[in-house]
Design a protein around this nucleic acid. Structure first.
Lengths: 217, 217, 217, 217
DNA sequence: CATGAATGAGCGTTCATTCAT
DNA sequence: CATGAATGAACGCTCATTCAT
């Protein structure tokens, strides 16, 4: 779980294949912060420039349009970081060779919890902009299906064969695990205020328990 | 389950306590439709006026500002409709005197599924605008806590006393049921495309099964 | 020759079929003045607004875009005023039943001289914007061909039949008369400074003499 | 008629009296091409730089401002190339010792036709930019008067003395010849589309015939 | 000399809001 | 109450110009 911060991944994948320049990085960071805080539509490019300490024109020199700046944040994440992350997640989650379904769900929930905690800003941008941005929505959903759901499904099947998990189609179960976790993270990191919640570890414990009880044989 | 449509409820509760005039109603209906379709920020008041068949000035005569129009849609819903709805929900859910926790969860999930299905537009506005609108967020959360979570908690406790539900604090359980359902509805009605899903009844069946298995003794 | 001023004609032909409002008129007049003086590209909409004594937004309320404002000046002129003018020109020119080719050319040259003198601003806008605006160019040329050249050709043929005009195809002659006059007007009203020229009457006398000698039998 | 291309002349005359460097030449050539195609105002210096294969800064190192670049194209042409051209024109036109006014006009028309055909781009820049650029306009007109009109006038006088040309003041006749030719070239190379025209030779024949008939005794 | 990233004034355009009718 | 023309602040964006390298 060493590198959970997307921005570092983000920096590695640009059209040019080169590192972002200093100013470009500062623009991206300022944009993420402001988009997350106030939303894309309510953030003026002049504010981003001010926050980043560059001239407004510099934003357009690097990204062409404001929308491109948004996409320059989101698309590489979807296209490159997300699959790579999916690999990393399952590598890490499976590294400890979870023997029970509970160990697996706990590892997954913990890993994702930490991830969303660390990248709450980006997560918020995603959720907000996706709602009316079908292109992004479909792109993201197809990537999730391909890279995450299919793996969870496989793992569930393994546990089903061992008789540890109830006999509902693995496709359904995996989607419900995914949905349940997503709902939890949405409540936790997007919708609700922090003060509603207990400490992290107990939160994770409960959601794991709920999920696992829900699917255990 | 006779009156699931919020708009009719919405019309009955205004600050002034009077009925909305015809034009005011048309403005609210047009605004809801457009806010839901394109988002608050991307909807011009001129569009709302056109869609409602009134002059742009009329909107401002009635609501003062565009934001007030949004709040005039959301606040009464939260303040009046939501509690009333909560009453109605539990009245209805409990009307059939659910004998088991499963019957209760199924009744609740079904009722809310139908509700969100019918009011998807308003649901979307809520989610989207709440993300960066802390006032709304807190208002909504406190109402939910007060009117929904506390009742679920009470019911859970009853079932715990009967030994049907596991011995996790009822507060936690109820919040997890709530979160799980909300996550499901967010996926189902806000984030995902329709075509990802099975038919309604099977969707409900599975989410109920997951939740119930998760908390059954 | 009572109504040589295009703007009055311009005012009569709008999409709505109504008279321009006062502000709309002032915008059009200011735009013509500034476009003519400084060119379309070098005139800011803020300047037009200032000159017209309206808010900048008012321009866009009425015309949508800056280019539409240009076209709202030029297109009605081409589509409506120009054909109508062509009618008027030949009506007037032929009203005095010119017995000789010289009388005809003189009447035509005089009428057009006065016209361009009075509408020099609009003439300049036309010439300047047409140079790189093929749509306008083609529109104008086709209207001129249809409404002006064909009539001149007819009249030339009549004089050829009377043996007054040399036996070059009437099509060629008419285009050369047209071109010669146009060249004269371009030099006179667009390119050259006023001080290069003699008094109007002598200018007209000479150009007529040149043209007539050029085509007389 | 060996060297009709202005650009080569252009390259030889700069303020500094030195040869243009390679990069400077490439900038000028690119600018001429783009100014002619899209107009001065619609051509970005970045485009010129790209087309010329130099950095944008290089343009400003050489020319200081964009307007200076335009003037660096037009002024030397007016100051140096135009008089030199005038010499060359009349040298060439008179080389064949035109015995009749028709031979003279034909030689002049042919020479200029070929010239404008070959330098249509530059011609367009001139016309377009001159319209609102009084400095340029006056500069050009005074040079034309001095170097071209005065010579034509002289030649016309000669033919008048031989009784070949009508007895209108030579000043007027020469300006009318000039104007008629200019009008023809404007129509031919700036305003009209190519497809309106016949083949070059017949075009020339007719314009010559018109002019000559117009002034022949 | 040459570069090109950076600049920021100025542009066309949008739109919530006002107000005379 | 209702209207819709008018407003002007604020926006995204362009581009001639500068300057450190």
């Amino acid at each position: 779980m060493k590198n959970n911060n997307i921005l570092q991944l983000l920096m590695q994948y640009t059209k040019e294949g080169t590192q972002f320049t200093d100013k470009k990085q500062r623009i991206v960071l300022a944009a993420i912060e402001l988009f997350a805080k106030k939303g894309y539509a309510n953030t003026a490019t002049s504010e981003i420039a001010k926050e980043a300490g560059v001239a407004e024109g510099t934003i357009f020199r690097h990204f062409g349009t404001k929308e491109n700046l948004l996409l320059a944040i989101l698309i590489p994440f979807i296209k490159h970081s997300l699959p790579q992350m999916a690999d990393a997640i399952f590598e890490e989650v499976l590294a400890e060779k979870p023997k029970t379904i509970e160990e697996f769900v706990r590892a997954l929930a913990t890993e994702r919890f930490m991830f969303f905690k660390e990248n709450r800003d980006l997560f918020r941008i995603f959720i907000k902009e996706m709602i009316y941005h079908d292109e992004l929505k479909n792109e993201l959903i197809s990537h999730i299906s391909e890279h995450a759901l299919s793996r969870i499904e496989q793992i569930i099947q393994d546990f089903q064969e061992k008789g540890e998990v109830i006999d509902i189609p693995a496709k359904i179960l995996s989607r419900n695990i995914f949905t349940t976790l997503l709902g939890f993270f949405l409540s936790r990191f997007v919708l609700m205020s922090d003060n509603v919640f207990l400490d992290d570890q107990r939160e994770i414990d409960y959601i794991v328990q709920i999920i696992v009880n829900g699917i255990k044989q």
